[in-house]
Amino acid sequence: MSDDIHVRALRKVFRQKGSGVPVVAIDRLDFTVRRGEVVAIVGKTGCGKSTFFNILIGLEKPTEGAIEIDGRTPYGDFDHFRGRIGIVFQQDRLLPWRSLLDNVTLGLEVIGLPPAEQRSRAERWLHRLGLDGFLRAYPGELSGGMRQRAALARAFAVNPSILLADEAFGHLDEVTARQIRGQFFEMVRSEGKTAILVTHQLEEAIDTADRLLVFGRPARLLADVGVTAWPPAEVPALRTRVQDVIETNQPDPAIAAKEPS
């Protein structure tokens, strides 16, 4: 199993509910994310990032094209991808009637682990994220940062090979966001996961990812940038160039030229 994510000629068109007028959310996307890569997808709000994310996690199907992992599509092979893709959403989406511990065991219950194993894994991840003292607390009793850390624990506990984060830190205050983002990427790298971070915050993307995929509106690839190929001194320039690409909604071949092979 390679776990590479192949996105091929992906296109998604919605029909407006009232008028039936077609709206192109994804124009065309072609790229591959290699196993172990940490990739950030950036673009303006409404550029189809979340639609792409929803197709990738299997909640929606593309109109044309495909996303393939091991030759299977995540929206077609429902059972095959159980426990293989971990997701962190913008809001924590913890179940309010479950304690933190039970929220983290949710994914483990779905994949059918024995209860003792569920509990020990959940405790391990909550401990790693500094939430040992809150195993029996309900989400409503905790701060936004603590809840988001529990959501990270829920995503990592199933031991997925691919981790996806959709604007996962954007709603937190800057200090908390930086802290939790740091924990997320530390865990991604130490566990050797493939990660795709969807964000509209360019700073966050450049600081954390190995590679930037810049989406235009509607979604198409404007730039595919290997961040690590850029020397630290040139990163501010890269930021400005990517910002320009996003603003103008036009590709910049000069950035792509620095892409690592």
Partner: peptide, 23 residues
């Protein structure tokens, strides 16, 4: 939001009902 979160874990129809809809 909660339905999408649980669906993304890919539960069976029975699990979806027992772990989300019923509670």
């Amino acid at each position: 939001d909660l339905r999408d979160m649980v669906r993304a874990l890919r539960p069976s129809a029975r699990q979806f009902f027992a772990k989300l809809i019923l509670p």
